[in-house]
Design a protein around this nucleic acid. Sequence first.
RNA 1: GUGAGUAUAGCUCAGUUGGUCAGAGCACCAGGUUGUGGCCCUGGGGGCCGUGGGUUCAAGUCCCACUACUCACCCCA
Length: 422
Amino acid sequence: MIKAITGTKDILPSDIRKWYHLENLVRKVFQNYNYKEIRTPVFEETALFARGIGEETDIVSKEMYTFKDRSDTSVTLKPEMTAGVVRAFIEHSLGEKQPLTKVFYISPMFRQERPQAGRLRQFHQFGAEALGSSSPLLDAEMIEMAYEILNRLGLNDLTVKINSLGTPNSREVYKNELRKYLSDTKDKLTAESQIRFEKNILRIFDSKAEQDQQIMNKAPLLIDYLDNESKNDFEIVKNYLTNLNIPFEVDPKLVRGLDYYTKTTFEIISGKVGSQSSLCGGGRYDLLVEELGGKPTHSVGFAAGMERILLACENEEVLNVPEPSLDVYLVRIDNDLFIKVSEISSALRKNDLIVDYDYLARSVKAQMREANKMNARFVLFVGGDEYKNGALILKNLSTGEQEKIKSEDINFLINRIKNYGS
RNA sequence: GUGAGUAUAGCUCAGUUGGUCAGAGCACCAGGUUGUGGCCCUGGGGGCCGUGGGUUCAAGUCCCACUACUCACCCCA
């Protein structure tokens, strides 16, 4: 038997309502903030991600689905959305058409990691990007939108963590301080952290290893080395959040794993999804557009993991999306009336009713069971003596009441079904 | 890439120290008088017990390998 690729999941009809619910909410909230949807290809030239995300990052160095296409071009399934959005932004000169570009997306992403709870190889993210402004109001707006969506889903066990990585200049100053601090104790770090010491020293803060944490607990913090501009912006973000009653924690050790972040970074954690607890993350990336060949463009954005969010909803038992019920189930009493049944169904369906019937020539009893199982509001009997006398029987399944309706009077039938109880 | 756990019907699981062990519940299908559901009753279909080796007179039941899944590390959404 051929099975789905490791780390991929089928979203079955029984689960699809949850996805609709989440996607609809996402579109609605983003539209409230006047973000327009953007859709970029699922694959791009490999170089885009290598340059955009950073060669040394784990994503680029060991997690991408990269392959040569038939014309020998190296392409990669997108592991995140920002690089693609920035590419499209530059390619279509969106920045020339208006000073600020606000876009959102909902899309599958691909990373070849070992699957576990809340982590898949094909997974889905929604997110937003605002390109063209350094205003910290937009940083805060990102957090607000993410929080709003999670909140409207009914999630409670949430923690918003924010930090500032400062401008590149202030970060360099700080990195030197950190190197000084670690110069003596470096040997006591785990092997992995010693590699990070060379490649991306800030990431040592991410380590969960006891020995690393002990050392890093006393390390100087980036937040104490911020330049005035970063410090001011960070204050504005905090004030904005406080003013809107969005609870947050400043986490000076919050370091994002993608190279392009500057200044504000944030993450929203759920306490209900196991070890992959980060539902969404993002931050400012003021240098990325220029890095990818565009004009210098201050930008900020975030991405959220949809599987993780749905997992959190399940574990908090907050997402109850009812299956839509059938308006009418047609029960065929005489088996030679298939054509008639399909004709009536067609007329009802054209009038925006949800209609189904039995295709398997089953007994009336079986058809009734089916109607009941599908939670149909009405059953319409087609056949028998009544039909010979020009009538159909409409039965209300919750009350059991039945009434005769003239076969010709389809409009009356439609009105009865649509207006019942109103 | 590393570690641990699991692998029996569509689903959730029982299967005792290896010897009627191929089962239950749910789901599915059909009946319960000739044209009407939800409850109930009766019956039925469906599994080479993840795959491949091995030990044994005998293996879902023990051993090994492989594969898949799950969780964790790692990483991140």
